[in-house]
């Protein structure tokens, strides 16, 4: 981990209109996440975790404040700029896997690179799938895979473009303990090997011992920030 900031959140607020009233989903949050750092965002339902993740990943725009990735402000980017940013610098892992049902496991892993315009991506994708233990399931469709297998495909997909930042939204939320454990292990193994900055939104307490920092949200603002166990201390 180096001290250079990869993700900088400055005084960010996101408000929604709900009938006559305005609700602040996240309120004046500021946070710096350094290159290679792993951060887990905890908090009860409705505390603003997913909203913050969406804002950081350029999926949504803040009502006020600014977010920058590697020094580039997301506020200054148009829709196409944000799309390129997500494609080139960000990887995603979702609670419900979000694989494209009409594509095979291999094709699902290849798609972010294809969007970027890479032609010779297949070897890299196969390599990643081998890494997550799915070398025999390359040509299976998501409907032919178990939940754990689908999430492993999603992990391979998240890393295919070698992103600077990886956002994971409840990555173990839909898995049994055995599969959750496997996913946690893979996520951190690959992340550590590549030095990717990792931001995880989760309820899963098992992550507390794996991340560098824990950010606890409550009512839309940061309630507490504390250090996690060192990332070298893998179970």
């Amino acid at each position: 981990m180096s001290g250079q900031s990869t993700l900088r959140i400055q005084n960010v607020t996101k408000s929604y209109r709900s009938g006559e009233t305005t609700v602040d989903a996240v309120k004046e949050i500021s946070l710096d996440i350094a290159e290679g750092e792993t951060v887990a965002i905890f908090g009860p339902s409705g505390s603003g975790k997913t909203t913050l993740l969406g804002l950081c990943a350029g999926l949504d725009r803040p009502s006020s404040g600014d977010i920058s990735i590697e020094g580039e402000s997301l506020n200054s980017m148009d829709e196409i700029g944000l799309s390129r940013l997500r494609n080139e610098k960000i990887g995603f892992i979702f609670q419900s896997f979000r694989l494209i049902p009409s594509l095979t496991a291999l094709e699902n892993v290849m798609i972010p690179a294809e969007i970027r315009g890479d032609r010779g991506v297949e070897e890299r994708a196969v390599d990643l799938l081998r890494r997550v233990g799915l070398e025999n399931r390359l040509h299976n469709y998501p409907s032919q895979l178990s939940g754990g297998e689908q999430q492993r495909v999603a992990i391979a997909r998240a890393f295919v473009n070698e992103p600077r930042l990886l956002f994971a939204d409840e990555p173990t939320g839909n898995l049994d303990e055995e599969n959750a454990e496997a996913v946690r292990r893979l996520l951190f193994e690959i992340n550590q090997a590549r030095g990717t900055t990792l931001v995880i939104v989760t309820h899963d307490p098992a992550f507390t011992s794996l991340v560098d920092r824990l950010v606890v949200l409550k009512g839309g603002h940061v309630d507490e920030i504390r250090s996690g166990a060192p990332s070298t201390a893998l179970p």
């Binding site: 999926l59 799309s83 979000r98 997909r157």
Partner: peptide, 10 residues
């Protein structure tokens, strides 16, 4: 929506 997340433009 997934494609959009992965960087495809509208």
């Amino acid at each position: 929506a997934v494609l959009r997340c992965l960087g495809a433009t509208p």
